[in-house]
C-alpha cells in the first residue's frame, strides 16, 4: 500500500469513528473509554513484530516489554468493559 491508500483508509476511518461515536449513548461513555482503550492496544501488533524478529537485541526486549504492556491493556480493558456492561440492566418485569 502506498501512502495515499493508507491516508485514505485513515481519513475514512476518522469519519466512520465520528458518526459511530456520536451514536453511542451517553450512559455508556465510560465503557466506551474502556473499550477504546482496549482496542487501541492493537499496537501490540508492532510490539509482536519487534519481539519476534531477529536483528536487534535491544529492539527485541523493547518489543517484549511492549507486548506485556499491551496485553495488560487488552485483557484488562476488555474484561473491565465486560464487567461494566454486565451491570447495565433493564427494569425487571414483575
Amino acid at each position: 500500500m502506498d501512502f495515499i491508500s493508507i491516508l485514505s483508509i485513515f481519513v475514512l476511518a476518522c469519519f466512520v469513528g465520528y458518526y459511530v461515536v456520536w451514536s453511542v449513548t451517553p450512559a455508556l461513555h465510560t465503557p466506551l473509554m474502556a473499550v477504546t482503550n482496549a482496542i487501541s492496544s492493537v499496537i501490540i501488533v508492532g510490539a509482536l513484530i519487534a519481539a519476534a524478529e531477529a536483528g536487534s537485541e535491544v529492539a527485541k526486549w523493547l518489543g517484549l516489554l511492549g507486548v506485556v504492556l499491551a496485553s495488560v491493556n487488552i485483557f484488562g480493558g476488555f474484561a473491565v468493559t465486560e464487567r461494566m456492561l454486565a451491570m447495565y440492566k433493564k427494569k425487571e418485569k414483575k
Partner: peptide
C-alpha cells in the same frame, strides 16, 4: 491504562527505529 498504551507506542516506535528491517 492510557499510560500503558502510550508507553507501548513509544517502545514500538523505538523498536522500529532500532530494527527497521524487522
Amino acid at each position: 491504562f492510557h499510560s500503558l498504551v502510550g508507553l507501548a507506542a513509544v517502545l514500538v516506535g523505538w523498536a522500529a527505529y532500532l530494527n527497521p528491517a524487522a
